[in-house]
């Protein structure tokens, strides 16, 4: 039925010419190759060294494949601290990031200057890796779980705000317009019309950051911010590979189990 509507002039009998992309592809490949060679020289890619070190390494690798299960009781406090840090950081950051997400979305914040300021701040925080925050906060607040939690919170807020504000941008603004037209203030209109729409996506982002936190909280201890990382640092500096291997195994199990749990929770709660 649509053929009768389209005009016959649109029908082409000759084949369209194939776009000539050969030169473009060659140029792109050349640029990528040059960057790779330049970077390779920079990081001193040295494959023969790996072969040479391999013999030394085999003993370490054999040790790594034999976890020392007797070490397990000593890791429990650190393991618990890792979990506590992840849970607390997730809760605090989800509470802080919900209002910030509304300030960072064009759909819910009518003030362009405030919008730009919030977005810029979030972009800035997001570009600093969590462990760098941790290493600075350890110096400021002191060694322990508190600095780790604060580093995780900073890092999480930037992620949740970005993801939730993007989903706010994409939501249907009809109900919000209606609320505004009926005389509601912006916060009230957002609360009544926009919040219910993004709650499911907010909840799943929070669960996602929880997974990130579990992984991150195992390592931010490397700079003294509490959790399993402190243990990793200890056993690593004394080359106790049997114990290191047990810790890595614990991280692996913890992350896989909690990821499965969070996927299940997401299905049930969202």
């Amino acid at each position: 039925m649509s053929t009768s509507l389209s005009s016959p002039t649109q029908h082409r009998h000759e084949r369209p010419t194939k776009p000539k992309l050969g030169a473009k592809y060659a140029a792109a490949t050349a640029v990528l190759l040059i960057i790779t060679i330049w970077a390779g020289i920079g990081v001193q890619v040295d494959l023969p060294a790996i072969a040479a070190n391999w013999r030394n390494a085999t003993t370490n690798i054999v040790q790594l494949l034999q976890p020392d299960y007797g070490f397990f009781p000593k890791t429990i406090p650190a393991l618990l601290e890792t979990l506590q840090m992840a849970v607390i950081a997730t809760v605090i950051s989800s509470a802080l990031s919900l209002p910030l997400a509304f300030l960072a979305s064009r759909a819910t914040n009518p003030r362009p200057k405030l919008l730009a300021a919030v977005r810029f701040l979030m972009n800035m925080i997001r570009s600093v890796p969590d462990i760098l925050f941790a290493s600075i906060l350890v110096a400021v607040v002191g060694v322990g779980a508190l600095s780790g939690i604060m580093a995780l919170v900073l890092f999480n807020i930037s992620i949740i705000v970005k993801l939730v504000s993007e989903s706010l941008d994409g939501e249907d603004a009809g109900a919000q317009e209606a609320a505004l037209a009926a005389g509601a203030s912006w916060p009230k209109a957002n609360r009544a019309a926009m919040l219910p729409q993004i709650l499911p996506s907010f909840a799943s982002q929070v669960l996602y950051t929880f997974e990130l936190n579990i992984r991150a909280s195992t390592v931010i201890g490397l700079v003294g911010a509490g959790g399993l990382g402190i243990l990793i640092d200890n056993v690593r500096s004394f080359f106790r590979y049997h114990e290191l291997s047990l810790i890595i195994l614990e991280i692996l199990v913890l992350v896989l189990v909690l990821e499965a749990l969070s996927a299940w929770l997401r299905k049930k709660l969202v």
Binding site: N53, L64, Y241, L252
Partner: peptide, 16 residues
Amino acid sequence: AVPEVVIAILILSVTG
């Protein structure tokens, strides 16, 4: 599931 830092610690023993 394994953070990059941990992978690096594992590889350290081979490559320095």
